[in-house]
Nucleic acid binder design. Structure first.
Lengths: 236, 236
DNA sequence: ATATAGTGTGTGTAAATTACACCATTGAAT
DNA sequence: ATTCAATGGTGTAATTTACACACACTATAT
């Protein structure tokens, strides 16, 4: 059945690439669309920017409306402006990404009818996505990789208390390569912004590892005068 | 005298931060505006995107119309979408940057009446710019700095034949810090994509340095299989 | 209760990279 | 001819990175 669609001109939209980390796997948030075009397809959460909101505000609103997630720290990473990227007309989209702890989150519940549901999907073996969203995801993943090297973003994906092995496996999942355990530990600990706790891991059937947490105050104290973390912030 | 201006909604524009290198100094391209708002102010070259052109195409066209420069390899780096960044209405602008050899270029000649003239200005001690262009410049400069570390962009700023000292002083100008001469040479040469020429510098009143050129074929050959140049591509 | 297999924790050393300081060469000025 | 100013060009010590194995803990089988 062919559906007749309206066309429109000069529209800004936002698309979101939201990363989470769960069970040693890196995942992103997808929605199932409930609207033409690409009805029933999987897609990144995304929608149109209003006249009276900044694009940053729009990104937060849209993510909330499509997935129920709020208060993420989202950052734009690229703008996609091919003429025919949207079948209904000229839509330029600004892509944002954010990181989140999956465990701490409740259900994902779209609050508009534009999405049927929202769910996490491993970044490996993603299905085809609506529009040019596969390309948007790929670009976002590359940016994430780069940023991991100079910003303390990993801690936004992990639970508050984590082991060094968990931290390392996150780095490995994002960078898609094995890292050296000794050096990773040495380097991470040498920064001084990881706080060693008295607790140990529980419920594991092997030697329990020490738990750590990220001390943001120390982090900003250490790096407040440094413009450039290229040497200090790099792991791997 | 107050000028009455039209207002408009939902407009995309492009702004360009074009870097050049001349006499050991890093410079950017500015225009003097010939149109309200901000008539007579200095600004980045920028204008509105048409309906039927991709933003990448628009960037090239707009730069050409305002400065006469063509065929630069421009890359977007950030999109600015505050509601009130433009006094006449909602304008979201995608900022692009590019690099160019100043020497090789002829006169700068705007081909529309929107700019009175276009000229190079050192990045140090920039005057106040129209709109939020000072912020756009600053963001672009930071991106340039980062990209210098993992892409061979320096060679786009230098003449075809250059000395290692020139290359180093460009890195120093962009990164705004002194680098170690020995390591810089060792590292640059170790990559293997610099071709040593039989020629030497001419017209200098001191010991003439060897000339080199960038061998892009070797570069792509060397790095074709590497996703990630973090270790190899880093200088400094 | 004891032995054993399995898995993750946690550490030392050699190789490679980076930081640093000096002498050499040339042309211009006197 | 001598000195000065400017840049070219190289060796060594300090730091960072790469790499492999012994030990601790748990679960399971006997």
């Amino acid at each position: 059945m062919e559906v007749k669609l309206p066309t429109f001109n000069s529209v800004f939209s936002i698309d979101c690439v939201i990363f989470g980390f769960e069970a040693g796997e890196l995942k992103i948030l997808l929605i199932e669309r409930n609207e033409e075009p690409y009805k029933d397809w999987l897609a990144l959460p995304g929608y149109i920017v209003e006249q009276d909101e900044s694009i940053d505000d729009a990104a937060e609103r849209i993510l909330y409306e499509l997935t129920g997630l709020r208060d993420l720290h989202m950052q734009q990473f690229h703008t996609f402006g091919e003429v025919n990227r949207h079948p209904q007309g000229r839509v330029i989209t600004v892509a944002y990404y954010a990181l989140i702890r999956i465990n701490g989150q409740k259900d994902l519940r779209p609050v508009t009818q534009y999405a049927k549901k929202a769910f996490w999907h491993p970044v490996n073996e993603l299905p085809k996505l609506a529009f040019d969203h596969s390309e948007i995801f790929k670009t976002g993943f590359n940016k994430l990789r780069r940023r991991l090297n100079y910003q303390p973003i990993a801690f936004e994906l992990l639970p508050e208390k984590f082991t060094l092995t968990q931290l390392q496996s996150l780095y490995e999942a994002v960078l898609n390569k094995k890292l050296d355990k000794r050096n990773f530990r040495k380097k991470m600990l040498s920064y001084g912004f990881l706080k060693e706790l008295d607790e140990k891991q529980k419920g594991v059937s092997y030697r329990a590892a020490k738990l750590y947490k990220f001390d943001r105050r120390k982090y900003t104290k250490i790096f407040q005068n440094e413009l450039n973390l290229e040497n200090k912030g790099k792991v791997g």
